[in-house]
Structure formats: structure tokens, C-alpha cells
Nucleic acid binder design. Structure first.
Lengths: 246, 246
DNA sequence: CCTAATGTTTCACCACATGAAACATGGTTA
DNA sequence: TAACCATGTTTCATGTGGTGAAACATTAGG
């Protein structure tokens, strides 16, 4: 072992267990043990610890574990002041009112993107976006934006990741990213979700860094590829304003 | 050591570190080490682990730690469906509109209570209640309710806790709890906070268990002890309705 | 009744978490 | 400039305490 670990294994495991609950809201002991490949007795001890500290609770009925009050308590103490999710909410609502479609805000987080805020279209047929969803970086308009404006090294790291799908034509893909950087927005048409289309633009903060991606999405019945391109300038203007705030 | 620990010390410590951020949103290494009485090198390793997993981040400017994205992500996956905080919000808003004062919802959590929801009075002078605040169980109208309707064993455990203040007259205190159970509400007048008065009632869920405490509070200038008793029946009716929902 | 799948506890082993101490860094003072 | 102090970081010997196999307990289902 050349580069010595300076982390604590038991804690890593406990945190991994907590993150399991982003995929399933209720989990049994063996279920968790299966997901993180540990012996159930080990998981049992970790769960006892998490439960004792209130980070998970046991459902009285199902006997399964779910996230506890402490998680919620912690989240209320996240520093709200500089949190884009609350800071940009009003601007997102205005954009939704203007375009009439669902508006989402994404943050790059490692090899994924995270939908940190969303305001839903109020039309009868609409795309419903779930806040907190973790989505892949290799598909969708917002992904393209986040990848296109990432650093070279960052991109290389992503592409080399085993999770990243094999590119049939790497040059064409890089060409597309270049195009996105040039015109300042990306589109997607039934790419991640059938029946959904989206436009996304980067939000550049005052330091000149791409801090997030802003997208507008809706059903293909209402949004043609033409519509996407019509939306783009409106989005860009909104993103520019938002960038001033963060 | 007679009763063997079946918890994991390193994990307990890591979780304790996380909870430190409910008191301070930004913390340095030695600061944390001081709070949980550990050597800074130990804390350093734990923090590296927490950071690697995204549960804390380092502020670029101050070099201090703050809670990370993962905490927020986890919190969005708390099962919202049966969460009283969102379920009872509309009813709380109606109550606020009716009485014109700040309405709070408390949950018992171990030796404390937790304000899990609050809607503020919209009068100029008002009591501002912070959601997520952890408060003691030995003072305040809501505390009295939560203690009064706790089980005998629970009460004993609380009273024997070293944190619990010495009771000058235990019999009088028990007498007061009995009175609260009889009339179904508790009051406080400049008890926890100078200048604030409150009434609180229990919320009994469909299983007949006291699941939470509902309180209305405001400045003493507007709320006399008489007002508190006038509010009580309104609160009780609201709590009855809320109880049906959880 | 047996079987299978849960969760729980015990226990011997030795990996690995631990804290002291040394080191590095930046900021403040004289 | 040096001396100082308060941060954070890394190293390392020590033995505690985390680990997983296995045994046990419990429940549900066939």
C-alpha cells in the first residue's frame, strides 16, 4: 500500500449506508448488507450506532430502517444564505411564469448532477421534476452544459470512468461540446426521458466559474426543437441575472 | 465492562461532529476537537472522511468546514408523505391567520424538543421562531405538554437526567403536569424567553399517541395570561383536526 | 413440521483507529 | 527579521476495538 489511507473505514461505511437511503426510503438489514457488500453483523453494528444517534429510525410497522430526525435537523442548518437553491428560486419562478414550463437548477456533483431546485409548470400536462434527484452526466441538456463547461482534466476523468458509456464517435461528441460552448446552450429531445424535451444554459457566477446549469423542460407535444431554440435567449438572459446573485 | 458496546465508536464520533454544525454553521478543526473532546489528529482523519464523502465541504475563503451537499441530498429523501412538518403546514397557517400569532410545532426528541415547523405571525412585532431549533424540555409551554403526556417511565428518566434542573418542589411540579393533562393545555409566560408568552396543546394521532405539541406564542404586550386561556380552545380544536391527519 | 429468511449476539483475531509528537504553514507581534 | 502562536497536516508505535464467521433467535411460509 503506497498511498496510505487517511480516512476512517468504519465511518466511510456508515456514510455509504446513509446514502443507500437516497435510492430506497426503507431498507432492511440484509438489503443494506447486499448493497454495500458487507457482512450483516457489521451492518447491524453500524445501524445500531446510526439509530442510537437518531440518524435512522426503525419503522414500527415494517421493522425496516428509514432516515431519522437528525438528518432533517442537520439539513435545516445548512447555510441558507449562499445556497443557490433558495437564492435563485424567485428568478426561477419568474422564468417559469414567462415560459410556462418546468424550470430546473442543476449542480455538478462528482460524476453526477444534482437537481437542487425546480419549479413546476402549472399547465395540466407538464414535466414533473423532483428536487434532490441525482442524474447521470452523460445524457440530458443540463448534463451537456455541465460537461461542456468543465475543465479539460475534469472531462478526461469523466470520460475514462467505467460508468461512462462507450462513445461511438468521440470526435463528434467533442465537436458537439464545442458547439455548446460557442452558442451558450444545449438542447435535448427525448434523450433521457421519452416525451420530454429541454434547453439548458450555464450559470456563470461573478468569479467567472460555471456554478450551475439552468434548464427549461416540457412535453414534446408542446415543445418542438424550434421552441427549444426560441427559449434559449430567454434562458441565457435569466442565467446572466442569476449569475450576478451567486 | 459489563454491558458490551454494540456500537461503533468511530462512527459515533463522526456523527457527533456532524451535529456540531447545528450550533455553528462554520467550524475549524481545533474548534471541533474542542467541542467533542478529541485530539485534533483524530478529528482531522474523521473530517477527511466526511469531506471525501461530501458530507462536509471546506469553505474556499475561510478554510473552515461547513455541511456539504450530501446532507441536503439525504434530507430531500426523507419520507415526506408522513412528515408532520409538511402535512400540518396548511392547518398551521390557518391557525396563524385566525389568531394572528406565530404558530409552532414541536416533536419530542430524546431529552429535547425540536421545532419541526413554524409559521410566523405577520404583525410588525412578532415572535420569530426558527425551524430546526433544539430546545430544552424543562421550560416552555410546549415542553410542559410533551412532558405531561409522556409515559411514567419516560418522565422518571427525564427527571433523573443530570441535565434536568433541580426541582425546588417536585410535588408542585407533578401537580402542574396533572393539571395540564386535565385541562388539555399548558401555558408559559416569559418562561424561556423574556417578553414571550405561549399556549401549547398536544396533538394526538389516530393511534391515540401524543405525537407532537402545537403552540401559539407572541409578545407579552399583546398576549396576557387571559389571552392564553382564550386561545386554548381554538388550539385544541385545531390540534384535534391535525391529529386526524397523522 | 421443516425450511428459509430475517435479525441478533458471541467471540477470537489482528487490522486499523488512535493520540502523542513532530512537522508545516500562515498570521501577528515586537 | 526573528520569534511567536495558532492553525492544519503527517508520521508512527501501540493495543484497543472493529471485524466477519458462526451460532443463535425469531418469524413467516410451504
Amino acid at each position: 500500500m503506497e498511498d496510505r489511507k487517511l480516512t476512517v473505514r468504519a465511518v466511510e461505511r456508515a456514510l455509504d449506508i446513509l446514502m443507500c437511503f437516497t435510492r430506497n426510503s426503507e431498507l432492511g438489514l440484509t438489503e443494506i448488507a447486499g448493497q454495500i457488500h458487507l457482512h450483516k453483523s457489521t451492518v447491524h453494528r453500524l445501524m445500531t450506532t446510526l439509530e442510537e444517534r437518531g440518524f435512522v429510525i426503525r419503522d414500527a410497522a415494517t421493522e425496516k430502517y428509514r432516515l431519522g430526525l437528525k438528518v432533517w435537523e442537520l439539513s435545516t442548518h445548512l447555510s441558507k444564505s449562499d445556497d443557490p437553491a433558495v437564492l435563485l428560486l424567485p428568478a426561477m419562478e419568474r422564468l417559469r411564469d414567462r415560459l410556462g414550463e418546468t424550470v430546473s437548477l442543476y449542480l455538478r456533483d462528482g460524476k453526477d448532477r444534482l437537481r437542487i431546485q425546480a419549479v413546476q409548470s402549472n399547465q395540466a400536462i407538464r414535466r414533473v421534476a423532483q428536487v434532490g434527484a441525482r442524474l447521470p452526466l452523460y445524457v440530458g441538456a443540463s448534463s451537456k452544459v455541465l460537461v461542456a463547461f468543465a475543465t479539460q482534466e475534469d472531462q478526461q476523468e469523466l470520460f475514462q470512468d467505467p460508468e461512462w458509456p462507450d462513445m461511438s464517435d468521440p470526435d463528434a461528441y467533442l465537436q458537439m461540446l464545442e458547439e455548446i460552448r460557442e452558442r451558450g446552450y444545449a438542447t435535448s429531445f427525448e434523450e433521457r426521458e421519452p416525451g420530454a424535451a429541454a434547453v439548458a444554459v450555464p450559470i456563470v457566477n461573478r468569479s467567472g466559474v460555471v456554478a450551475a446549469a439552468l434548464s427549461v423542460s416540457g412535453p414534446v407535444g408542446r415543445i418542438s426543437t424550434d421552441t427549444l431554440h426560441e427559449f434559449a435567449p430567454v434562458l441565457k438572459e435569466a442565467a446572466r441575472e442569476m449569475g450576478m446573485m451567486i
